[in-house]
Write a protein that binds this DNA or RNA. Structure first.
Length: 293
DNA sequence: TACCAGGTAAAAA
DNA sequence: TTTTTACATGGT
């Protein structure tokens, strides 16, 4: 299956950034486990052409409901995101020009499902991303479902039948275990309609998410920008965001969330994507990947 | 060892 | 009403 994406698209760079932000060490692999039609499904993606940007799916067999599956993959890949208008705006600024030019074709991937995004967000509250990653790996090992050599992340219904102690055994705090159980139970009964999130306006969705116990401002905004690809949403209280915005745009100062919002204001409607590019650039320097490019 | 790490809800003041 | 605290793991 071939997926033709809006270019420019650098799949390898995007994948490497996903790995870096997920807590894994940089990987060039393109393999992914996800649920499809109630089946744990392993897929492998690779880019076969730059211009036009084509991502190819290797999978045997190709999942059923091919057309819908392709649409789902396009979502995960952010295939329809147009980077050129964003680049044109940022290139007019002398701080951003070199940053953008070193990250051409970088797109933020979206997780294969939104409940998984919820778990990612809650697991990352307060503790380091490394610590959160190892907790999620234990959730995956304990409650996931094999999909070939990979493991599909547990669904709401998989969590819903667990208890607090089972989740605590994976390293979650009692509080977070309670949040996840409540959310999983509501999602599996339909009281929380995750599918409806996709079409809601940013503000309305943030308000809805914040009404759930365990979801504060940071978590809601993080889910929108990372889980739903809302390019204008910034989790301004995020430590990483405050650090990079301070580093690149405020002379290295420590910034309050309010200051972050003010400084990013001119970059609407791409404030979230702008923050993502700053985070990615900072990470790339840290990893020493700018020379490897 | 102590402290911080891409927060939040609930208790205490 | 506002401020303070408990919480989990991994790295330094």
């Amino acid at each position: 299956m071939r997926i033709i994406c809006e270019g420019p698209y650098d799949f390898r760079l995007s994948w490497r950034m996903l790995s870096a932000f997920s807590g894994q060490s940089a990987s060039r692999d393109g393999s992914l486990a996800m649920w499809w039609e109630d089946r744990p499904t392993a897929i492998f993606l690779r880019q076969t052409s730059q211009e036009p940007a084509v991502i190819e799916l290797i999978s045997d067999p190709i999942p059923k409901e091919t057309r819908r599956f392709q649409k789902r993959l396009r979502t995960v890949l952010n295939a329809d995101l147009e980077l050129e208008p964003f680049y044109r705006k940022l290139r007019r600024d002398k701080t951003f020009r070199p940053i953008v030019n070193s990250l051409i074709g970088l797109k933020p991937f979206r997780p294969p499902d939104l409940f998984q995004m919820l778990v990612i967000a809650i697991s990352e509250q307060q503790i380091s991303m490394t610590a959160a990653y190892s907790i999620r790996e234990r959730l995956l090992a304990s409650f996931g479902t094999a999909a070939g050599k990979l493991t599909a992340f547990p669904r709401p219904r998989d969590f819903a039948s667990l208890d607090v102690d089972g989740l605590r055994a994976c390293g979650l705090s009692r509080r977070k275990a309670e949040y996840l159980l409540e959310l999983a139970q509501k999602a599996s009964t339909g009281e929380i309609d995750i599918a409806a999130w996709e079409d809601m306006p940013d503000d309305e969705l943030i308000e809805l998410l914040r009404s759930y116990r365990g979801v504060g401002e940071w978590t809601a905004e993080y889910i929108l920008v990372r889980g739903l690809g809302r390019t204008d949403v910034v989790p301004a209280s995020d430590l990483g965001v405050r650090r990079v915005v301070g580093h690149y745009l405020a002379d290295g100062k420590d910034l309050s969330p309010q200051e972050v919002r003010e400084i990013l204001e001119p970059w609407a409607p791409w404030r979230g994507l702008t923050a993502f590019y700053l985070l990615a650039h900072y990470r790339m320097i840290q990893m020493g990947l700018d020379q490897a490019q």
